[in-house]
C-alpha cells in the first residue's frame, strides 16, 4: 500500500486536496498499527501457551477480524479513487462500521486472553509457576 501510494503520488493524490491526502496518510498508519498489533498478539499467544482448539480459534479470529479492519480502513483511506467528495458518506459509514467491528472484536479476543492469564495467576500450579521457573533458569545461565 505504501509503495502504491508513493508511485501514484504525483499522478493521483496530489490532484486531491491536502486534507484528503492527509486522510490517506493517517489511514496508512492505522493499518500499520493494526498489522503490528496482530503480529504481536499472535506471538504473545504462542508464548502464553495457547494449545489445541482454543489456539486455532484464537489464531483464526485474530487473522479474520484484523483483516476485516485492515480491508475496511484501506477502502476508507483510498475512497477518493472510487467515490466523489459529495457522495462519500455511505461508503464512510460502511467502512467505519466494518473497521470498528474488526478492531472491537480484536480487543475482545485480547481481553479473553488476558482474563485467561489472570485466572491462571490464582491457580496454585498454573502456567505462571512453570514460567517463573523458566525465567530463573535462563537468568542463571546468563549469570554463569
Amino acid at each position: 500500500m505504501g509503495i502504491f501510494t508513493a508511485v501514484k503520488l504525483d499522478e493521483i493524490f496530489r490532484n486531491w486536496q491536502y486534507m484528503d491526502e492527509r486522510s490517506i496518510l493517517t489511514g496508512h498508519w492505522h493499518i500499520l498499527g493494526t498489522l503490528t498489533a496482530t503480529i504481536l498478539l499472535l506471538y504473545y499467544a504462542d508464548l502464553a501457551g495457547l494449545k489445541g482448539k482454543v489456539r486455532r480459534w484464537f489464531g483464526w479470529l485474530v487473522i479474520l477480524f484484523s483483516d476485516l479492519a485492515f480491508g475496511a480502513v484501506t477502502v476508507y483511506e483510498m475512497r477518493r479513487l472510487i467515490t466523489s467528495e459529495g457522495t462519500q458518506q455511505p461508503l464512510i459509514n460502511k467502512t467505519t462500521l466494518l473497521g470498528d467491528i474488526g478492531l472491537g472484536t480484536l480487543l475482545l479476543i485480547l481481553a479473553a486472553l488476558m482474563v485467561w492469564r489472570l485466572a491462571d495467576l490464582f491457580k496454585k500450579k498454573g502456567k505462571w509457576s512453570s514460567e517463573t521457573g523458566e525465567r530463573l533458569e535462563k537468568k542463571g545461565e546468563v549469570n554463569k
Binding site: Q17, M19, E85, G86
Partner: peptide, 25 residues
C-alpha cells in the same frame, strides 16, 4: 462542513491545485 473540530481553528490551512472544485470549497 466535513472537517473535524481541530481543523476549524483559524490557522489551519488546506491546499489544492487551482483547478480543484469541491462541494465544500
Amino acid at each position: 462542513k466535513d472537517s473535524y473540530e481541530n481543523n476549524l481553528r483559524v490557522w489551519v490551512r488546506n491546499n489544492a491545485t487551482p483547478t480543484f472544485t469541491s462541494p465544500a470549497v
